[in-house]
C-alpha cells in the first residue's frame, strides 16, 4: 500500500506538492495528517529493523550490544536516517517553505516531530537489541483447529498485522469512496474499474507474502499429492477469502445506476487478477525492483485500457484466461529452477 501511495505521490507535479505543503503549513489538521503518515512509515521501518534483529538468521547482531551506548546510538542513527530518507527529504522541503513564508510554529512543529521520530526510532530499536526475545503477551485461549485455507490468513494476521490492516483498510476505503463518488457526477463504469485496478494493486504484495510463507514454512507442500490444478483451486479459495470483504463492501455501497450482476462481475474480475498475480509470482524469486516496475507498468497499461473503454467482462476473461494458460504450463514442484 505504501508503494501505491508513493507512486500516487510521484504522479503529483512539484507545484502540486508545493501547494499541498503551503496548505499544510497553515493548517494544523493537514499538518497532523502529514505527521500521522510519517509516524506510520516510521513505525513500519523500525518494526522491520526489530523483526530482523529477532530473525534466527540475524541473531549474530546481538553481539552489537558489546559496543558502547554512544557508538550504538550513532550507528542506529545512521541506519534510521537512511530508512527515513523519504520523510527527512520531504520534511526538509517543508521546512524550507516554512522559512520562506515565516511559518515559525509550523517550522518548529515539523522539526520537533521529525527529530522525535528519529530519536524514538533509535531508542526503540536499541531497546530491542538490549531486550531480545521478549515474552509476547498471549491470551490463554484453547487452540482451535486451523484448516489449510486459514494457514496464510492466520500468519498474515499474527506476523504481519500492519500489512494486513493497511491493505484491507486502504482497499476497502478506496472502493467505498469510488462507489460514493459515482452518483455525484457523470461518471461511467470506468470509474469503478479504476477503483478495482487500484484495489487489486493494493493487494499485489499479498502474492509475494503468501508465496514466501509457503516456501519457507510449508516445504512439505511440494511433496503432497496435489496436481497443479488442485493447488490452483486451493489458492483460488484462499484469495476468495482474502478478497471477500471487498464483495461485502461492494454489495453494501454499490451505486443505484449499477446492477448487482455488474458488481459480482467486478469482484470476480478482481479475484481473477489476484489469482493471476499469485500464479505469476508463486515459487519464483522476484526481484523487488523489477516487481515495482511491473506494478507501475500494470497500473499505466490498466489505466490506458480502461480509458479506452475496455469493459469489465474483457478484464475478467483476460485475468482468468491468463491464469489458466500460465497454470497449464506449470509443473510440480511449483518452483522455478534457480
Amino acid at each position: 500500500m505504501l508503494v501505491v501511495m508513493l507512486l500516487a505521490a510521484g504522479f503529483m507535479r512539484a507545484s502540486d506538492h508545493e501547494a499541498l505543503i503551503d496548505a499544510a503549513l497553515g493548517s494544523p489538521v493537514l499538518l497532523g495528517c502529514f505527521m500521522a503518515l510519517w509516524g506510520l512509515y516510521t513505525l513500519k521501518a523500525t518494526a522491520f529493523v526489530r523483526s530482523q534483529l529477532a530473525a534466527p538468521d540475524h541473531l549474530f547482531f546481538n553481539a552489537f550490544r558489546l559496543q558502547t551506548p554512544s557508538l550504538r546510538g550513532l550507528l542506529w542513527l545512521w541506519v534510521v536516517a537512511e530508512l527515513l530518507i523519504p520523510i527527512l527529504g520531504y520534511a526538509g522541503w517543508m521546512l524550507v517553505r516554512a522559512v520562506r513564508f515565516a511559518q515559525w510554529s509550523a517550522f518548529y512543529t515539523i522539526a520537533t516531530a521529525v527529530m522525535g521520530l528519529v530519536v524514538a526510532s533509535v531508542v526503540w530499536v536499541d531497546y530491542r537489541l538490549r531486550h531480545p526475545a521478549p515474552a509476547p503477551l498471549r491470551l490463554n485461549l484453547p487452540a482451535l483447529p486451523i484448516p489449510y485455507g486459514l494457514f496464510f490468513p492466520t500468519y498474515w494476521l499474527r506476523k504481519e498485522p500492519v500489512s494486513l490492516v493497511l491493505t484491507k483498510v486502504s482497499s476497502g476505503l478506496l472502493l467505498v469512496g469510488i462507489c460514493l463518488l459515482y452518483p455525484t457526477d457523470d461518471y461511467d463504469q470506468r470509474l469503478l474499474l479504476l477503483g478495482l485496478l487500484l484495489a487489486v494493486l493494493f493487494h499485489a504484495s499479498v502474492s509475494r507474502q503468501a508465496s514466501q510463507f509457503e516456501q519457507h514454512y510449508l516445504l512439505l507442500l511440494d511433496n503432497l499429492p496435489y496436481s497443479v490444478w488442485q493447488r490452483l483451486g486451493r489458492h483460488v479459495i484462499l484469495y476468495g477469502l482474502i478478497w471477500l470483504p471487498e464483495l461485502a463492501l461492494f454489495l453494501r455501497h454499490y451505486p443505484d445506476a449499477v446492477t448487482v450482476q455488474y458488481v459480482l462481475l467486478l469482484w470476480l474480475t478482481g479475484l481473477g487478477w489476484l489469482v493471476l498475480i499469485h500464479t505469476l509470482v508463486y515459487g519464483r524469486r522476484v526481484d523487488p525492483d523489477r516487481w515495482l516496475a511491473c506494478l507501475f507498468a500494470t497500473f499505466i497499461i490498466g489505466l490506458l485500457t480502461i480509458m479506452a473503454h475496455v469493459p469489465a467482462s474483457v478484464w475478467c476473461a483476460l485475468g482468468w484466461g491468463a491464469t489458466i494458460v500460465f497454470s497449464r504450463f506449470r509443473r510440480l514442484p511449483l518452483k522455478v529452477a534457480s
Binding site: 494457514f151 500468519y155 499474527r158 519457507h216 503432497l224 499429492p225 496436481s227
Partner: peptide, 29 residues
C-alpha cells in the same frame, strides 16, 4: 506427480513449520 507423491514421503533434517499451528493442524492436513 500425484501418483508419485502418494508413494514417496519425506522428513526434513531441520523442519520449519508455522509456529502458530499445532501438531493436530498439520497432521490432519
Amino acid at each position: 506427480p500425484v501418483d508419485y507423491r502418494l508413494r514417496v514421503n519425506y522428513a526434513e533434517a531441520e523442519p520449519v513449520y508455522p509456529d502458530f499451528l499445532t501438531a493436530r493442524d498439520l497432521t490432519s492436513f
